[in-house]
């Protein structure tokens, strides 16, 4: 398949690029920065968390678009959500951090458990949940009028959190998002003046700054060039173990490269979307039980 060839080409080229980018000094420097512990007062508890959907359903108005999703996203693992457009992946993702309820007429059923606690339980505030479960959107959305530094620290201001060492927090967050080297000399220039790929990594840094337990990503690379895409994938790889990642992607190679677990969503015509099959990524891509999954991962429909 010519497709695979192209993919390999891009990879090796980018690999070189990344290696050139991080020198020995940089690595040592980064290690030192990460050795510093930055405390965020009022922030989420430390470490990744397990997210579990139990019989999750979602409506827009009277229309049921997602039905009966049972899915465990284990802590520290990367879970990929795949499936054709319109089958409810974004809707499911937005159920996970209470962004769904912002849409007028939206409704839901079922439970979403974050380390065992239902995020929709009475008395749980959406702001608290969203602080623990960060989100990166399809279209990069930095705050254009704010500087790069202010962008990274935006969550502190928004959620009224205090931090004892903001400079280190900025550096750590940008390092984790793979953007530090490119912007360290212009932290005070506006976030809107970066390239698309850099903006997306800035958004990742912004989400990571509060040390969330979970990071949700909705097709984070669909608007990016191959180099930036690879950078974001590197970042996801480095986050493994530190943060639970849930990523929606239309790129099968990407799902294979970055995820440990995979869930295949599908919606029959005029039917709500549901999870057809889920499991370890390598199984899902080699020997899935449902023939529709095999068709989809091999690009035969979708």
């Amino acid at each position: 398949m010519p497709d695979v060839d192209v993919d390999v080409d891009v990879d090796s080229e980018v690999e070189q690029d990344l290696e050139e980018n991080l020198t020995e000094d940089d690595r040592n420097e980064a290690e030192k920065v990460f050795a510093k512990k930055v405390e965020i007062i009022g922030g989420p508890p430390a470490g990744p968390a397990t997210l579990e959907a139990k019989d999750a359903c979602a409506w827009f108005g009277d229309r049921l678009v997602l039905e009966g999703v049972d899915l465990i996203m284990p802590k520290g693992k990367v879970t990929a959500l795949i499936g054709p457009s319109g089958c409810g992946k974004s809707t499911f993702l937005r159920l996970l951090n209470r962004m769904h309820e912002l849409i007028p007429g939206a409704a839901l059923d079922g439970e979403i458990l974050l380390d065992g606690d239902d995020i929709y339980a009475a008395g749980t505030r959406a702001q608290q949940v969203r602080m623990r479960i960060g989100m990166v959107f399809q279209k990069p959305n930095p705050f254009p009028a704010m500087t790069i530094r202010e962008n990274v620290l935006a969550a502190l201001k928004l959620a009224r959190l205090k931090c004892d060492d903001k400079d280190t927090l900025v550096e750590q967050s940008l390092l984790r998002a793979g953007l530090w080297k490119e912007v360290r000399d212009r932290l005070d220039s506006p976030g809107g003046a970066l390239s698309g790929g850099q903006q997306q990594r800035l958004c990742i840094a912004r989400s990571l700054a509060v040390h969330p337990n979970v990071l949700l990503m909705d097709e984070p690379c669909s608007a990016l060039d191959p180099t930036s895409t690879r950078r974001v994938e590197e970042t996801i790889d480095e986050l493994r173990g530190e943060v639970t990642v849930v990523i929606v992607t239309h790129n099968m190679q990407q799902a294979q490269r970055v995820s440990d677990l995979c869930a295949f969503f599908l919606a029959a015509e005029n039917q709500p979307g549901m999870v057809v099959e889920q499991g370890p990524t390598d199984v899902m891509f080699s020997t899935p039980t449902d023939p529709r999954t095999l068709d989809y991962v091999q690009g035969r429909f979708g």
């Binding site: 951090n97 962004m99 702001q127 969203r130 602080m131 960060g134 959107f137 279209k139 254009p144 959620a159």
Partner: peptide, 15 residues
């Protein structure tokens, strides 16, 4: 997109 970003970061409506 920017409004969603602010809310997704844990901001209140007023924030």
């Amino acid at each position: 997109g920017e409004k969603e970003a602010a809310l997704a970061l844990g901001g209140t409506r007023w924030g």
